[in-house]
Simulated assay, not measured.
Amino acid sequence: MNPNDIILSIVFCSQTAVGLLGNSFLVCLFLLMFLTGHGLRPIDTILAQLASFNFLFLLSRGIPQTMAALGLKNFLDDIGCTIFFYLHKVSRGLSLSFTGLLSAFQAVTISPSSSKWAEIKARTPKYIVLTSSFSCTIHLLLNITVFVKVKDSQGSRNSSELHDFGFCSGLEATKVNDAPFGVVVSLCDAVFLGLVVFASGYMILLLHRHHKRNQYLYMTSLSPTASPRTRATKSILLLVSTFVCFYSLNSIVIAYMYFNKPRLWLMKCCGFLSICFPTFSPFVLISSDSQLLKYCYGLWGKKAPHL
């Protein structure tokens, strides 16, 4: 194995390990908060599920990708390859869906009570479970085609019929069969990505109006700290910005490889970008969410600083 492969395997291994630890810590933190009777916010339900799906994404993408970088491309048989790739596709779609759901929920939460969203705002927490269940069902059913399209790299088919994913290969179906599936998946991604962008723009507009309306108070206040709602909104915006940045870069690379013969370094770059958001998201949430920080300090018996 050449030095470049060694460096690449170390990068993938470190990235995956850090992401798995961060997301598992966040999931365990929410679970501990629930078991100890600590009051959970409605948004915590979405954050816990997002961290769970990011953990699953890293498990199904990061670990096989690391093994492939070490030169162990054929360590999965047909069944293992198919299961890993199915989990990868489902968790990727759910990560996108729950990021959109998170943005939409926070946008509705901070909207003025006197607005036309007032009635929806009051019922939003009740819709979380229903929306989450619907999203999970859709992605589980939508990606069933993976069981037809994916096979082990050691299969006997002609290499011209295969598209290498690093550790698995997917059968390239005919354009007639591929087109409807591709349109449906792309449409779902576009809807949730549009939801993320729209909700983020709406929150930025509300924060700007709020800042202008209270600018005089900030100038005269002895302790110009932001409200908990403002801090929570900013943390969501930071998370969403991280997501949009990495998702856009990854999509550009994927689109380029679709229209051109994929090169090995581009495929590895695509793999690196695909797991950047699941890796960094738990640390963005923990560092920018005052409620999570206070509970973390409480676990270690320390008094949280004024946040």
Rank of each mutant, 00 (worst) to 15 (best):
N4R: 08
N4Y: 11
D5L: 05
C13H: 08
Q15L: 15
A17Q: 02
G22P: 10
G22R: 06
S24A: 11
V27A: 14
L29N: 15
M33F: 01
T36G: 10
T45N: 09
T45I: 06
A51P: 14
F53Y: 08
F55D: 05
L56Q: 09
L56R: 05
L58I: 01
M67G: 13
A68P: 13
G71P: 09
L72G: 01
D78M: 09
I79N: 14
G80T: 05
I83E: 00
F84D: 11
S91M: 07
S95R: 08
L101Y: 05
L102N: 13
F105P: 03
V108P: 07
E119G: 13
A122C: 06
I128T: 04
S132M: 06
K149D: 05
V150H: 05
D152W: 03
S153M: 14
R157C: 02
F165G: 08
G166C: 12
S169V: 08
G170F: 15
G170Q: 12
K175D: 09
S186M: 12
C188L: 12
Y202F: 03
I204K: 04
L206K: 11
M219E: 02
M219R: 15
T220V: 15
T220G: 06
L222V: 12
I236C: 10
L238F: 03
V244K: 09
F246E: 03
L249Q: 07
N250E: 07
N250S: 05
S251G: 07
V253N: 09
A255P: 01
Y258P: 00
N260R: 09
W265Q: 11
C270I: 10
F272Q: 06
L273A: 04
C276E: 06
F277K: 13
F277S: 08
S288T: 15
L292M: 15
Y297T: 01
L299Y: 12
G301D: 04
K303T: 06
K303H: 06
H306W: 04
